[in-house]
C-alpha cells in the first residue's frame, strides 16, 4: 500500500515538476511569471489535440512545448522588450491561457462527431507506463523507480539537466547573474535580452509539457475543461519551496503530489475526514510554506534579486 502511495505521489507530482522547473527558469532570468497556469493550460490543449489528431506522443509533446512557449513569448515580449509590469502581465497570461485553452477545447468538442474527445488507443499505449527491462522487475525498487510513463522520466531528466545548467555551466552562471543584477551582467558583456528570452521561452515550453500531462494522463485521455486546475499556481509557490533549485524541485513536486492524492490512500479506519479538506490540503500547505520561508530568511536561498524588476540598459 505504501509503495503504491509513493508511486501515485510521483504521478501526481509530475505536472508540478514541469511547472516548477519552468518557473525556475523564468525567475532565474529575473522574470516572475505568474502565467504558469496559463502556459500549462495552453500546453494541455495543444498537446491533447496534437495527440488526438496525429497519434504520436512526440508530436503531442512538441505541440505542448510550442504552445507553452507561445504563451511565454507573449509574456516575454511584453515584459522584456516592452517592460510591462510583470505581475499584471503574468496574471493576464494565466487568465488568457486558461480561457483560450477551454475555448479551443469546447470548439473541438462542438465540432466533434460524438461530442466527446478521447485520445486514440495508439497514443494511450505510448503514454502508458514503461517497464524498463531488467530493472522494473526488481522487488520494491522496480515499481518505485522503473515503471513510470515517459512524462515522469522526461520531467526528472529536464530537472536534472536544468540543475546542471545553473550550477555547472558558464551560460548558467550568466543567467544567474542576470537574475541577480542585470546591469552587472550587461556590463560584463553578457547578452541580457537574448538570454532572458531563451530562458523565459524554454521555461514556458517546459510548463506546456506539464500541461499536456494534465490533459492526457490525469483525465484518462478524455478532454475536460480546466485540465490544469490550479496546478500551475501551486508550481509557482513550489519554486519558493525548492528555493530556486531544480534538484529540490524534484522532491518538492513529489511531496506535493503526495498531498494531492492523500485522500485515496489515507486509511479511512483511523479517522474520516471530508474530501474537501483533503482537496484543500495542498493549498494550505503551500500557504504555510510561504509563511515559513518568509519568516526565516537566508541570504543565499532567496529569490533572484532582480526578479520582478525589468531591465533597461539606458536607465539613469
Amino acid at each position: 500500500m505504501f509503495i503504491k502511495f509513493l508511486i501515485a505521489a510521483v504521478f501526481a507530482g509530475t505536472p508540478l515538476l514541469f511547472g516548477t522547473v519552468g518557473e525556475i527558469m523564468n525567475e532565474r532570468a529575473g522574470h516572475l511569471n505568474l502565467g504558469v497556469e496559463g502556459m500549462m493550460a495552453m500546453g494541455a490543449c495543444a498537446g491533447f489535440m496534437a495527440g488526438f489528431f496525429y497519434d504520436s506522443i512526440s508530436i503531442a509533446l512538441l505541440a505542448a512545448f510550442l504552445a507553452g512557449m507561445l504563451g511565454a513569448l507573449i509574456y516575454a515580449v511584453l515584459t522584456i522588450t516592452f517592460m510591462a509590469n510583470q505581475n499584471v502581465t503574468g496574471l493576464t497570461l494565466a487568465i488568457f491561457g486558461v480561457g483560450i485553452s477551454n475555448f479551443a477545447g469546447e470548439f473541438m468538442l462542438v465540432n466533434s462527431a460524438s461530442n466527446s474527445l478521447k485520445l486514440p488507443e495508439q497514443i494511450t499505449a505510448q503514454i502508458s507506463n514503461i517497464n524498463i527491462p531488467g530493472l522494473s522487475t526488481i522487488p520494491v525498487l522496480g515499481p518505485l523507480f522503473f515503471q513510470y510513463n515517459i512524462f515522469v522520466y522526461l520531467g526528472v531528466l529536464i530537472a536534472i539537466t536544468c540543475g546542471i545548467y545553473y550550477s555547472r555551466t558558464k551560460t548558467g552562471l550568466n543567467v544567474r547573474a542576470i537574475g541577480e543584477n542585470p546591469g552587472a551582467a550587461d556590463a560584463a558583456g553578457i547578452k541580457v535580452t537574448k538570454l532572458k528570452y531563451i530562458n523565459v521561452l524554454m521555461g514556458g515550453g517546459i510548463c506546456g509539457i506539464g500541461g499536456a500531462y494534465c490533459s492526457m494522463i490525469i483525465n484518462g485521455g478524455v478532454w475536460m475543461n480546466n485540465p490544469v486546475n490550479g496546478q500551475g499556481w501551486i508550481a509557482v509557490a513550489l519554486v519558493i519551496f525548492a528555493s530556486w533549485k531544480p534538484f529540490r524541485a524534484i522532491f518538492g513536486s513529489f511531496i506535493f503530489g503526495a498531498f494531492n492524492i492523500l485522500k485515496y490512500y489515507f486509511p479511512k479506519t483511523i479517522i474520516t475526514i471530508p474530501n474537501a479538506f483533503y482537496d484543500m490540503l495542498p493549498f494550505v500547505i503551500t500557504a504555510l510554506v510561504l509563511v515559513v520561508t518568509s519568516i526565516r530568511k537566508s541570504k543565499e536561498n532567496q529569490q533572484p534579486a532582480s526578479c520582478g524588476v525589468n531591465y533597461f540598459r539606458e536607465e539613469r
Binding site: 555551466t169 558558464k170 550568466n174 541577480e180 551582467a185 556590463a187 560584463a188
Partner: peptide
C-alpha cells in the same frame, strides 16, 4: 574596460565568479 562608480557586481557571487562572468571560452 569600464570601472563603474556604482559597482556592477553580483552580490551573492564569489570574487572569482564575478571576474569570469560573461567571458568566453569553456568552463
Amino acid at each position: 574596460g569600464m570601472i563603474y562608480q556604482h559597482f556592477k557586481l553580483v552580490e551573492i557571487f564569489s570574487a572569482m565568479d564575478n571576474i569570469v562572468l560573461g567571458t568566453r571560452g569553456r568552463y
